[in-house]
C-alpha cells in the first residue's frame, strides 16, 4: 500500500507539473470577450468568422445606444464550433439576440488551430468531448499540412500542440501568441488601423461570372444540420436568431440569394449588409475603411458598420439602453470605450 501511495503521489505531482506547463505554454486567448466582466445578461452575442471580429465593435454599439454584448467569432469558425460555443455560453449568460455570421456557411469543419482556440476556452465538459468527437481527424478541411499538429489529443490536451512554445520563454513572446494585430481587442472585436486601398471600384454583390471562379453557393448538409441545432438551441432558450452577412467584397449575389432563401425557409431573420441600400447607408470608403482585400475592416470602417448595427438593434423592442438604467456595468463599458478612444487617437498601429 505504501508503494501504491507513492505511485499515486508521483502521478499526482507529474500531472500538476504538466498542467502547469500546459497553462504556461497555452496561447493567451484573452482577446476573446471577457464574459466575467460583462455580467450574466447581455443584449447580443455575435458568432461566426473573422468577418465579424474585424467589423463589429461592441464598444461603439455601447456608446451609440447603450446595448451590451460581445463577439465570440474565430477565424473560419464553422457552425459546428459556433453551436458548442453558444451552448457553453448560454449556460452562464442570458442574451436577447444571437447574430450568426453567414460567412460560416462557407466552411464545414474550419481550421483546426482556430477550433483549438474555441476548445481551449471551453471548460472540460461532456459538450467539449462531443465537439472534439464531432470535429474528428479525417474531415476534408483538416488536410492542411501546417495544421497536422492538431488532432483529438491536442484538442483535449493543448500541450500536445503547444509544447514547442518552450522556445518562446527565451524569446520573450510567450505571454501572448496574438501580439501585433490581435493586441487591441474590445469585447471580442479585434481593432486595427491597417489600410488597404482598392485600386478599382469593385462592385458590391457581384455575380459569380463577374467575380470569376467557381464557388459553392448551396448550403451543405453539414451546415444545414448544425444550423438547425443552433436554431433549436436559441428557440429553447428564448433567444432570437439573426443571420447576418457583414459587408464583403467577396460575397456573391448567388450566395446572398441562397442564404436569403434558406433564412426564409427556416423562418429566421436575415440581415444582408451587402444590399445596395445598406451599403449606401454605410457610406464605406474604399480608400480608408478596409484593412485587407477580404471582408475585414479597420477601426474606421468598423465604426460605420457598428453604428448601423446599433441602429438596427434599436428597432428591436426588447433592447433597452443600459446607460439610462445606470447598472453596475456602466463603469466597465465606459472604461472600455475610453481605452478604445486612447487606442484610436494614439500612434499605435
Amino acid at each position: 500500500m505504501k508503494k501504491l501511495g507513492k505511485a499515486v503521489l508521483f502521478c499526482l505531482i507529474l500531472t500538476l507539473l504538466l498542467a502547469l506547463f500546459n497553462k504556461i505554454l497555452m496561447p493567451d486567448t484573452q482577446f476573446r470577450a471577457d464574459t466575467k466582466e460583462l455580467g450574466s445578461e447581455v443584449d447580443y452575442i455575435f458568432l461566426g468568422t473573422s468577418n465579424v471580429f474585424y467589423c463589429v465593435n461592441p464598444v461603439i454599439i455601447w456608446n451609440e445606444k447603450g446595448y451590451t454584448g460581445y463577439d465570440l467569432s474565430l477565424e473560419q469558425a464553422p457552425l459546428i464550433v459556433s453551436f458548442y460555443q453558444l451552448k457553453e455560453e448560454l449556460k452562464k449568460v442570458r442574451t436577447k439576440t444571437v447574430f450568426l455570421d453567414c460567412a460560416a456557411f462557407e466552411y464545414n469543419y474550419g481550421i483546426p488551430s482556430m477550433n483549438q482556440l474555441a476548445l481551449d476556452k471551453m471548460p472540460f465538459s461532456r459538450d467539449k468531448l462531443k465537439l472534439i468527437h464531432e470535429l474528428g481527424e479525417d474531415d476534408a478541411d483538416h488536410h492542411v499540412a501546417a495544421e497536422q499538429t492538431y488532432n483529438k489529443i491536442s484538442y483535449l490536451i493543448p500541450l500536445y500542440s503547444f509544447h514547442e512554445r518552450w522556445k518562446e520563454i527565451f524569446e520573450g513572446t510567450l505571454k501572448s501568441r496574438y501580439h501585433g494585430k490581435y493586441e487591441h481587442t474590445f469585447a471580442g472585436y479585434v481593432a486595427n488601423k491597417d489600410h488597404y486601398v482598392f485600386k478599382k471600384d469593385y462592385r458590391w454583390l457581384p455575380t459569380m461570372e463577374e467575380f470569376g471562379g467557381v464557388y459553392e453557393t448551396t448550403i451543405t448538409p453539414v451546415n444545414r444540420e448544425w444550423f438547425e441545432k443552433i436554431r433549436n438551441l436559441c428557440e429553447a432558450k428564448g433567444v432570437e436568431l439573426v443571420l447576418i452577412k457583414t459587408p464583403s467584397k467577396g460575397w456573391l449575389v448567388e450566395m446572398s440569394n441562397s442564404l436569403k432563401a434558406f433564412a426564409k425557409e427556416e423562418g429566421v431573420e436575415y440581415l444582408e449588409m451587402n444590399d445596395e441600400n445598406v451599403i449606401t447607408a454605410l457610406s464605406l470608403d474604399e480608400q480608408n475603411d478596409f484593412c485587407d482585400t477580404s471582408s475585414h475592416f479597420n477601426i474606421y470602417g468598423t465604426e460605420k458598420i457598428s453604428r448601423y448595427l446599433a441602429a438596427y438593434m434599436e428597432k428591436k423592442a426588447s433592447y433597452t439602453d443600459q446607460r439610462i438604467q445606470g447598472t453596475g456595468i456602466n463603469a466597465y463599458w465606459n472604461q472600455l470605450y475610453e481605452t478604445y478612444l486612447d487606442y484610436k487617437n494614439s500612434d499605435t498601429e
Binding site: 506547463f21 505554454l25 499538429t149 500536445y160 500542440s161 509544447h163
Partner: peptide, 25 residues
C-alpha cells in the same frame, strides 16, 4: 533517495513532453 530519484524522473518526462518533436507528420 526518493527526492533525487523523482527529480530525475520528472525531468526526463518533462523534457520528453516539452522537447519531443511530435504532434503530427
Amino acid at each position: 533517495h526518493i527526492v533525487p530519484r523523482w527529480v530525475i524522473l520528472f525531468a526526463v518526462v518533462i523534457a520528453t513532453v516539452l522537447f519531443g518533436l511530435y504532434g503530427g507528420g
